[in-house]
Amino acid sequence: MWEVVGYLLMLILACYGVYYVVQDIVKLLQHAPGPPVSMLVVLRNRERDIEYLMRRLESWRKHQWVELEVLVVDDGSEDDTRRILTALQGKCNFRLITVTDDKHNVSQGDQARQVGLLHCHNALVWLVDLRRLPQGLLAEKVFRVFFSQGWR
């Protein structure tokens, strides 16, 4: 008799577990996409790692369900960053905005960041300022949390 009770108890627990697994699968299939997000990347003189970063971002975007708009603001780069970004525009989906530093017009705040914010179309903006990172540090480390979390 105790064997029958044990088997019934295991059957009940198994059905209970299957029920919750099915509920989780249904939730995953019926999820609504998240709100659209604008990613504003402000950079200067990043020719060493910008191509790798943009290609990684583009491949990552294909596997996410959030609508992500990428804007790249070049804040007066003196190396080949602008040329690399212009060449990547045909392969990666982002908008490039170039800002030339006008020495005569000194305004309060950061002009490149303000111009980028004015061009964002979404209410949620993720600002990544690569100008603040040392040149030896790869910009990919900044995005590691964003890539691994997946905006869920």
Score class of each variant (00 low, 15 high):
residue 37 V to Y: 06
residue 79 D to N: 06
residue 77 S to F: 02
residue 40 L to H: 07
residue 77 S to I: 00
residue 110 D to G: 01
residue 14 A to C: 13
residue 39 M to E: 04
residue 66 V to H: 14
residue 15 C to H: 04
residue 13 L to T: 13
residue 44 R to K: 14
residue 45 N to I: 07
residue 81 T to A: 05
residue 30 Q to S: 14
residue 10 M to F: 09
residue 53 L to Q: 01
residue 103 K to C: 04
residue 26 V to H: 11
residue 46 R to A: 10
residue 98 T to G: 06
residue 123 A to L: 10
residue 78 E to L: 07
residue 147 F to Y: 15
residue 129 D to L: 07
residue 143 F to K: 04
residue 106 V to L: 08
residue 59 S to C: 00
residue 141 K to W: 14
residue 1 M to I: 06
residue 36 P to R: 04
residue 109 G to L: 01
residue 131 R to K: 15
residue 42 V to C: 05
residue 104 H to N: 12
residue 27 K to S: 10
residue 90 G to L: 08
residue 147 F to S: 01
residue 122 N to Q: 15
residue 89 Q to C: 02
residue 34 G to T: 11
residue 100 T to W: 00
residue 23 Q to E: 13
residue 113 R to H: 08
residue 131 R to P: 12
residue 95 R to T: 15
residue 82 R to Y: 02
residue 35 P to R: 12
residue 92 C to Y: 03
residue 70 V to K: 10
residue 25 I to F: 10
residue 24 D to W: 11
residue 116 G to N: 06
residue 91 K to W: 05
residue 63 H to V: 14
residue 149 Q to N: 08
residue 43 L to G: 09
residue 137 L to T: 13
residue 104 H to Y: 09
residue 23 Q to N: 12
residue 80 D to V: 08
residue 90 G to T: 10
residue 9 L to F: 12
residue 63 H to G: 11
residue 71 L to K: 12
residue 103 K to W: 07
residue 51 E to H: 01
residue 42 V to Y: 02
residue 119 H to Q: 15
residue 20 Y to V: 00
residue 84 I to V: 13
residue 102 D to K: 07
residue 129 D to H: 12
residue 60 W to N: 01
residue 66 V to P: 03
residue 143 F to V: 05
residue 10 M to L: 12
residue 132 R to T: 11
residue 49 D to L: 02
residue 37 V to M: 14
residue 122 N to F: 02
residue 25 I to R: 08
residue 28 L to Y: 02
residue 110 D to F: 00
residue 39 M to A: 09
residue 29 L to E: 02
residue 84 I to P: 01
residue 150 G to P: 09
residue 115 V to D: 00
residue 32 A to N: 07
residue 138 L to G: 13
residue 38 S to P: 04
residue 27 K to T: 03
residue 27 K to N: 06
residue 6 G to P: 01
residue 118 L to H: 12
residue 69 E to F: 02
residue 20 Y to M: 03
residue 13 L to Y: 08
residue 142 V to T: 14
residue 124 L to P: 01
residue 115 V to A: 08
residue 7 Y to C: 06
residue 102 D to P: 09
residue 118 L to P: 01
residue 98 T to F: 00
residue 49 D to F: 03
residue 24 D to A: 13
residue 125 V to F: 10
residue 112 A to L: 05
residue 90 G to P: 01
residue 71 L to M: 04
residue 19 Y to G: 07
residue 123 A to S: 11
residue 49 D to P: 01
residue 96 L to H: 11
residue 140 E to T: 15
residue 48 R to P: 01
residue 124 L to G: 00
residue 83 R to T: 15
residue 5 V to Q: 08
residue 124 L to R: 14
residue 82 R to W: 00
residue 27 K to C: 00
residue 82 R to F: 04
residue 118 L to Q: 15
residue 43 L to H: 03
residue 27 K to E: 13
